[in-house]
């Protein structure tokens, strides 16, 4: 089964190659989370456990700051749920790419869906020869870098190079590129612009993560309407 082994090596290599920019982005964010969580009273063990079980950056930041301000379990869990509800949308999009994959692998795959792994994998599925094994690899390499960097941060701020080499911008730059990769035509650009502006406006009145999901749903629906309109006017013209 030499071919199978070589296949596995290729899968691991290609998945890791696709995931390294995510790791670069997660690393400073993970360190920062570790430091904040440690200040809120969590041990490195507990920090690692939370990162492993929850694996949701923004939710973890919010949860720890709520913990530090003495919030109860229920409000924290509800906030976590709202902030991460957008994963339902991403998971729905990825479902199309994972048709025919066994349920247990799908269940494992679901664990690793984040904003970043979602966009990287979706782009790979759309633009090159990509399969669920490589995608799963992307998820887990990213997960490893998140768990590891949060634990490291939990050992203290001495490991955190504050603001050096623009490392705080890594995650933003990554999202910028992932957005650029999604823009295929003018309609995509329009939907993105609407969604972004809506998210900003909604975030002014509604704190927390709800703005992302509300803005996305409205903008995607408008995109569908625009596409229908474009089609019917083209049909009327011809």
């Amino acid at each position: 089964m030499g071919g199978g082994a070589r296949d596995n090596v290729t899968t691991i290599w290609e998945g890791t190659k696709a995931a390294w920019p995510i790791c670069l982005g997660y690393f400073p964010a993970g360190l920062a989370f570790g430091v904040i969580a440690q200040k809120a009273g969590l041990s490195p063990m507990e920090i690692g456990l939370m990162s492993l079980v929850v694996f949701a950056g923004s939710s973890q930041f919010i949860a720890v700051s709520m913990l530090a301000s003495g919030a109860g379990i229920l409000p924290i869990v509800l906030t976590t749920f709202t902030v991460n509800l957008r994963n339902m949308l991403m998971s729905s999009v990825l479902a199309f790419q994972l048709r025919g994959v066994k349920k247990r692998w799908i269940s494992l795959f679901a664990y690793g869906i984040t904003d970043e792994s979602f966009a990287v994998n979706l782009n790979a599925f759309r633009s090159r020869d990509w399969d669920w094994r490589r995608a799963l690899m992307v998820n887990h390499v990213s997960n490893l870098s998140w768990v590891g960097s949060t634990i490291l941060g939990g050992y203290g701020s001495k490991f955190v190079p504050q603001g050096s080499f623009g490392i705080d911008y890594a995650l933003v730059a990554m999202l910028l590129c992932l957005l650029a990769l999604q823009l295929r035509n003018g309609l995509d650009l329009l939907v993105g612009a609407i969604s972004g502006v809506l998210a900003v406006l909604i975030s002014l009145v509604l704190p927390g993560g709800a703005c992302v999901i509300i803005a996305s749903v409205i903008a995607a629906t408008l995109g569908l309407v625009f596409r229908k309109k474009g089609r019917s006017s083209r049909e009327a013209g011809s």
Partner: peptide, 21 residues
């Protein structure tokens, strides 16, 4: 499927713009 096709660009933009501003 067409609706879901717009979701990635919408989510990424909705994540980014509030952070940038």
């Amino acid at each position: 499927r067409e609706w879901l096709d717009f979701v990635p660009v919408a989510i990424l933009s909705a994540l980014l713009l509030p952070v940038l501003l």
